[in-house]
């Protein structure tokens, strides 16, 4: 008995620990699964404090950017910062300037384009130059919500990808998972932060702040479930492009006249 005491007991202890871990995991999975299953039978409209009229089943939002209309004034980025109190040095939307030649290309976005763009000198022969507004693509198959370990990142029924700052633990997985660089860790709250398509505005019938101030209508916001919506008409009938389509994230931010250099 005493000969095999150490080996036997250690083996049993490990076995027990392993079994208990498995059992615990199975219990969590079963309970979690049943909780989700029961939720599917509950009412599907979002709770609206104050008895508001917004029903997220009636909308499916989409964003449309015509790069040929953008003048790079940065009004959108400034409005976003003011409307959403975005901290200095971080951007929920920004503008990139592309200078493209046959030999080389140059991309810059000084302060996110918030102060406009000074003329730039490049060390190659430039054939074309243009601005590209960037924003969270609110992807339908978004990697950022898939990697969240605590269910803080999610996509609403009306198509917005949001972050629950109360649940977020600030691990930053989603920041790394986003192929578009749309997320950042807020320096004050230490939680993930990103464009919400101004969810506090669009649920009140307003456009996002960036769309509201765009002086050339390069940025448009629309509802794919609404008959006669101009954005829906373009998405359905015109030739639209998306960023990094090979990643299969199904962006809901569409572009027209996008150059091949843009990622």
């Amino acid at each position: 008995m005493s000969d095999c005491h150490d080996g036997c007991d250690g083996g049993r202890r490990e076995f027990l620990a392993g079994t208990l871990k498995l059992a615990g995991g199975a219990v969590v999975t079963v309970i979690g699964g049943s909780a989700l299953a029961s939720s599917s039978s509950s009412p599907t409209s979002a709770p609206r404090p104050g008895g508001g009229a917004y029903d997220w089943n009636e909308h499916l939002w989409a964003y449309l950017i015509d790069t040929t209309k953008c003048i790079g004034c940065g009004s959108c980025a400034r409005a976003c910062k003011a409307e959403n109190d975005v901290p200095d040095g971080f951007y929920r939307t920004w503008i990139e300037r592309y200078v493209v030649g046959s030999e080389d290309s140059h991309v810059d976005s000084p302060n996110g384009g918030m102060d406009g763009f000074p003329p730039v000198q490049v060390g190659f022969v430039a054939n074309k130059s243009f601005f590209v507004p960037k924003i969270c693509n609110h992807c339908r198959a978004t990697p950022c919500t898939q990697v969240c370990p605590v269910g803080a990142s999610y996509r609403t029924k009306d198509g917005a990808v949001l972050v629950d700052a109360e649940s977020c633990i600030g691990c930053g997985y989603c920041v790394q998972a986003c192929p578009y660089g749309s997320r950042f860790i807020h320096p004050a709250t230490h939680t993930a932060s990103k464009c919400t398509w101004c969810y506090h505005r669009i649920t009140k019938g307003l456009k996002p702040a960036c769309v509201t101030v765009c002086p050339t209508q390069a940025r448009q916001f629309g509802d794919l479930k609404k008959e006669g919506d101009p954005v829906r008409a373009v998405v359905e009938h015109d030739r639209v492009q998306i960023l990094q389509g090979h990643l299969l994230t199904e962006p809901q931010c569409y572009y027209t006249h996008l150059d091949k250099e843009v990622r």
């Binding site: 609206r48 404090p49 269910g151 803080a152 990142s153 999610y154 969810y199």
Partner: peptide, 14 residues
Amino acid sequence: RYRGANVAQQMDAR
């Protein structure tokens, strides 16, 4: 798989 109450919180976030 998220906290349902957050949707309404986002609507009134600011």
